[in-house]
Amino acid sequence: MVQGRNNSQETVRVDFRFRRELAQKLEGNLASFCYQCGACVGDCPATTYSGTFNPREIMLKVLYGLGEELLTEDSILWQCTNCYNCHERCPQEVKPVEVIISLKNMLADRGIIPPSAQKIIETFETTGRTTPISSAVHKQRERFGLPPLQPVPMDEIRALIEPASKGGDTA
């Protein structure tokens, strides 16, 4: 099922550089415990409703180190609905959804983020919120007797999301 391998090659060469990079991400290394049972697939809505997505196959590609098949502009990773069913079902506590999010971190490191997601990330990074506040919002709140929303202390948020200077703090 893993596509894109060179058919003339008999053996798979594991790309350990990719595996090491993924292991740097929080819970990225959990894929190592996957024994390919497929328990994560049955209740996965992205598998049910798309022809291309399958968490077991994604874990297999990770195990084989076929990262470049996953880290593409039109990556299937963003089909995941974050429902956590796979996390619930996996007997090995692989947390496939967390591995998928770690892979998305690698996509982001390569500057690949879907525009819809990028917009929300930017709103958060500039205002500390994902839903922008406007005068219309204040007016609506007033109608319900609710106080206006206070600005988020952005100096603190900015300080926190700044990467560590020596790059050593990615779990």
Binding site: K25, E27, I101, N105, A108, F124, T130, I161, P163
Partner: peptide, 9 residues
């Protein structure tokens, strides 16, 4: 969204 960018942040 933000978690997908950088889990540690």
């Amino acid at each position: 969204y933000f978690k997908s960018k950088d889990k540690i942040s």
